Simulated assay, not measured.
Amino acid sequence: MTRWTIVLTVACVLALGMSGVLWWHQLQQPRIVTVDLTGLADEARSRLHDTSRIGTFARKLQGELVRISRDEHLVILPRQAVAAGAPDITERLRRRLLP
């Protein structure tokens, strides 16, 4: 086997591997889920009363939405913006963020 044959074989294997990774990434379409932001905000106001605690809740909510979206490959929309058919994660956020 000549040097050029080895180089060409390695290049082809790398190209096929990269193509496979790109193809797999294209198959990973994000899912759409909803969250009732208005309901969570109203519940936080009624439970927490103190404005500093409400501000802390808002920052935690924003961080949790970003984390869930990134880690689980989700597009999160307000419940009011989706007519039907998307799973809702409001209860999950409520359990995690509200005492």
Rank of each mutant, 00 (worst) to 15 (best):
A81P: 12
Q29M: 15
G17R: 04
R95Y: 04
V10H: 00
G39F: 03
G20L: 08
G39K: 03
R96P: 05
R53Q: 15
L98C: 04
L97P: 10
R79K: 12
Q80T: 11
Q26V: 06
V66Y: 05
P99K: 04
L65T: 06
L65H: 02
R95L: 14
S19W: 05
G63E: 07
A81W: 04
M18K: 08
P99A: 09
G85V: 02
L14D: 03
A44K: 02
A15I: 04
L37N: 02
R53G: 03
I54F: 14
L77C: 07
L22N: 10
H49S: 13
T51V: 14
G39P: 09
L27E: 09
S52Q: 13
A15S: 11
R79H: 05
Q80P: 05
E64I: 03
H73L: 14
P87D: 05
V7N: 02
T9P: 06
W23K: 06
Q29H: 12
Q62D: 15
A84R: 12
D50S: 12
L16R: 07
S69C: 05
T5H: 14
T34I: 11
G63C: 00
H25K: 15
L8K: 06
R3E: 15
A58V: 11
G63Y: 00
P78Q: 06
I32R: 08
R92C: 03
L65F: 01
I68Q: 06
T51S: 13
R45P: 10
D42G: 10
A11G: 12
R67A: 13
L22I: 08
V35S: 04
E91I: 04
V35W: 00
I54C: 07
A44C: 07
L98Y: 01
D42A: 12
S69M: 01
A86N: 04
R59T: 08
L22Q: 13
D36W: 04
S46D: 01
L8A: 09
T56R: 13
G20F: 14
